[in-house]
Design a protein around this nucleic acid. Structure first.
Length: 566
RNA sequence: GCUCGCAUAGCUCAGCUGGAUAGAGUGUCGGCCUCCGAAGCCGAAGGUCCCAGGUUCGAAUCCUGGUGCGAGCACCA
């Protein structure tokens, strides 16, 4: 439609009514907020008034005369300060609905242009099963990846395994204690070990594997072996957790695999070549000083050159790498693999980490590869009106499995996407289980199920969908909502905001339910026209088109469209 | 103290990257099932879009400065 308007503008230009060479990039042609204004509206006259040296109303009038003669436009009227409202012919809506019904890929786009995008998400430490805090990031990252895929990007979904740091040693020692326990020894879980019950089984299977080989042996005999054994076991747990949530990764990338290969050194050298690495002593942090602060000379990355607030240590004073160094190497590896864009999905507690990582990626890629870090805020779990508390110390926390077992993967995923990622999310267990209208998942699935129900009945009657016949405002309303889908997908993809899809689906379901209920009052609006196969055929395309969009939208979110509600 | 994020109806939140009279859900009040599934629909009431400036035809949206809340802030990842 925008093309029509631009063509009309070109006509005006040719006719000498407006000056040539105007910048039309700000001209928008969109459905207006208030449908009473028309089907489409353009701000062309207001945008162009100033550069053209004409009054907005004059341009709008001239444009209206041109557009009136376009066949798809029923009427073009000037309103307000210079808006041009277009009323489109019903036949155009019918054509759209038919298109959507026949074209299952409606909404898919190629705006990504095959750009290679790496989405890293979850990346939970391999020290235990995933808990609720991880679920949000997992669902968000997964939906974002699907959204980018839907819009023509070549997406890689990736999990970074932090198996190189001190926390996996802690894990290994904790498993060792369980191993001793499996041999009947009395053990004590000191601070700084993981007491979770989930390690009992790991200790036992370690016993099955090595027998008594590690009992009463010094740490240097078993630590390395137990670490590998334990992290493998934890990753199996995590993979299983992801599976029940319906998250599929393309790639698990091990931090440990970076060590001893010179890759960290290579990445650091690359920074050094740009004079971004130096030895120095950081200023103490402003405000409250940590009690044990003392100045230390460290190897630092000059991240301030790339927008960070202070330079960051990459090497500890004892000469070993900080966690930041392998992270730099890991991101360098992503750049090296040829990605055009990187996205990290992290928990909100990593906020302080964003600038330094962006600085590193900017430096390593000569500012070629953008890194977008999406921080997911906390999930506040409530049940019976009471907040759930998780104690990491006690090893007592709500696991992903607890949530999925109780409410199912579909509800879990949808609920996690009903808030934008940078706002905290309330997850109410009772409502999630309740399956009532408080629960938006069911509202959307219900719409889909209603369509399927109609189709089953139509099939019984032997009626096939035919050319759509739309007349009633409620029908046009649904069609209009469908027409927004491709544009919404593009906006959501550009903004990296999959939650927009969830809200859109709710809106679409709403206008569909409204139409459905209009059928209660007005029999002519029912999809199944009793005893009139031809009329029924004309009605079936619209609900089918709705089902097409709902299922591809839910597909992006990773939620199953329901065939029927039970 | 610094950094990042958030602030919109009683409550929980959308708001299409600057458009017209700011929208849903929930709660309150009032209606709709001999009917393709009422797990639904329709209507009413409810607003200083945190405050103050600025940018322009036009601001909830962009900029500056405040206020409040949250998260983070040197050899932990």
């Amino acid at each position: 439609m925008r093309d029509r308007v631009l063509a009309a503008l070109a006509d005006l230009e040719a006719a000498g009514e407006i000056p040539a060479g105007l910048d039309t990039s700000n001209v928008s042609v969109e459905p207006p907020r208030d449908p009473a204004h028309g089907d489409m509206a353009t701000n062309a006259a207001m945008v162009l008034a100033k550069p053209a040296g004409r009054k907005p109303r004059d341009i709008a009038d001239a444009l209206a005369r041109r557009l009136d003669s376009v066949p798809e436009v029923d009427s073009a009227t000037v309103a307000g300060p210079g808006f041009l409202n277009l009323r489109l012919a019903p036949s155009l809506w019918a054509g759209l609905v038919e298109h959507v019904r026949a074209e299952k890929a409606f909404g898919r786009s190629e705006i990504g242009g095959g750009e290679r995008v790496n989405v890293e998400y979850v990346s939970a430490n391999p020290t235990g099963p995933l808990h609720v805090g991880h679920v949000r990031g997992a669902v968000f990252g997964d939906a974002l990846a699907s959204l980018l895929d839907f819009t023509g990007h070549a997406v890689t979904r990736e999990y970074y395994i932090n198996d190189g740091g001190a926390q996996v040693d802690v894990l290994a020692r904790s498993v060792y204690l369980r191993y001793l326990q499996a041999h009947g020894r009395e053990v004590e879980f000191a601070d700084g070990t993981y007491p979770g019950d989930y390690l009992i089984a790991v200790g036992e299977s370690l016993k099955d594997e090595v027998g008594e080989a590690y009992v009463d042996q010094p740490e240097d005999v078993w630590l390395e072996k137990v670490r590998v054994f334990a992290t493998d076991a934890m990753m199996d747990l995590i993979r299983e957790d992801l599976r029940i949530l319906g998250v599929k990764m393309d790639m698990f990338y091990s931090e440990k695999s970076l060590y001893g290969t010179g890759r960290i050194e290579t990445a650091i050298e690359r920074l050094r070549a740009q004079d971004l690495i130096y030895k120095g002593t950081l200023e103490p942090p402003k405000g409250k000083l940590p009690s044990d602060w003392e100045p230390r000379e460290q190897t630092l990355f000059r991240s301030t050159e790339h927008g960070d607030d202070v330079d960051r240590p990459i090497m500890k004073s004892d000469g070993s790498w900080t966690y930041f160094a392998p992270d730099i190497a890991y991101h360098y590896d992503k750049i090296d693999r040829g990605f055009d864009q990187l996205i990290d999905v992290l928990g909100a507690d990593h906020g302080g980490y964003v600038k330094r990582m962006k600085a590193a990626v900017s430096a390593l890629s000569n500012a070629r590869v953008p890194l977008d870090v999406k921080l997911c805020q906390l999930v506040k779990l409530t049940k019976d009106g009471q907040p759930f508390r998780m104690g990491k110390r006690t090893g007592n926390f709500i696991t992903l499995r607890d949530v999925v077992d109780q409410v199912g993967p579909d509800v879990t995923r949808f609920m996690m996407l009903t808030r934008k990622n940078d706002a905290p999310l309330d997850f109410d267990f009772d409502k999630a289980v309740e399956q009532s209208k408080d629960n938006p998942v069911f509202y959307v699935q219900y719409a889909h199920a209603r369509v399927r129900s109609v189709m089953r009945k139509a099939a019984d009657l032997g009626v096939e969908p035919g050319a759509p016949n739309l007349a009633d405002p409620a029908e046009i309303d649904v069609a209009r909502k469908l027409a927004e889908w491709p544009r919404l997908v593009e906006i959501a993809a550009r903004a990296h905001e999959p939650h927009r899809v969830a809200f859109y689906l709710y809106d679409l379901a709403q206008s569909f339910h409204a139409l459905w209920n209009r059928g209660n009052d007005d029999a002519s609006l029912r999809f199944l026209q009793e005893g009139d196969a031809q009329a029924t055929a004309g009605k079936l395309s619209l609900p089918l088109a709705v089902a097409v969009v709902i299922s591809s939208g839910l597909g992006i979110l990773g939620v199953t469209p329901a065939e029927e509600m039970r």
